[in-house]
């Protein structure tokens, strides 16, 4: 089983030492470096229950999950996948703000399963002075089955114009008569 990726992820073109991506540098179709999480443990689900306050016994008590919940045994909180994908997003966005993040759990996740989180930029546009990118996100288990699917919107800045930036065609400014 692979450990979750170390930070910064190997091979990432721009090491986010102090800032995240700039709007003009992001292309539609860009695939975020995937984040492969370690297999989920029952202890982890207990920690998640405590951290999130979600003490639905189906996530930690095998008997209740089987008999009262009817889910065939303990299963992970659906939104733990959202936490994992949140990590994927922030690893790429760094300090660029998320505006919106929505996710659906589409398959049951059990202890022992390892999720891989992925994302792809599907749109970029400007709206009300925000430079927005839309990222289609998801997670799949070690069998390749999709467990979560959703989207995120983030606002990216553009690089400030350098003062006195060279102009490509100075003759246009000098009003030279042509012909």
């Amino acid at each position: 089983m692979e450990a979750s990726q170390s930070f910064p992820p190997a091979g990432l073109a721009v090491a986010p030492a102090s800032h995240g991506p700039f709007f003009e540098e992001v292309q539609v179709g860009f695939e975020l470096p995937t984040v492969r999480k370690r297999p989920i443990t029952r202890l982890q689900l207990a920690k998640y229950a405590a951290a999130s306050g979600d003490f639905n016994p189906s996530h930690v008590d095998e008997e209740i999950a089987r008999e009262l919940g009817g889910m065939g045994g303990v299963f992970a909180h659906g939104m733990i996948g959202m936490g994992f994908i949140g990590e994927l997003l922030v690893r790429w966005l760094w300090d660029r703000p998320l505006r919106r993040f929505s996710l659906r759990a589409v398959a049951v996740v059990r202890p022992g399963e390892a999720l891989e989180c992925y994302g792809k930029v599907v749109r970029k546009w400007v709206e009300e002075e925000d430079n927005l990118v839309e990222i289609a996100v998801g997670a799949r288990n070690q069998r390749g089955e999709v467990t979560h699917t959703g989207t995120a919107l983030a606002a990216l800045p553009t690089r400030p114009l350098a003062p006195g930036a060279a102009v490509k065609h100075p003759y246009l400014l000098e009003h030279r008569v042509i012909g």
Binding site: D54, F55, N56, P57, S58, I64, A65, L68, G69, G70, H77, G78, M79, M82, P97, L98, R99, R100, F101, S102, L103, R104, A105
Partner: peptide, 15 residues
């Protein structure tokens, strides 16, 4: 509702 019967399937967060 019964807690063990709940499935938290979807969430949308606005920041």
């Amino acid at each position: 509702v019964d807690l063990p019967k709940l499935l938290h399937g979807e969430q949308e967060i606005v920041y």
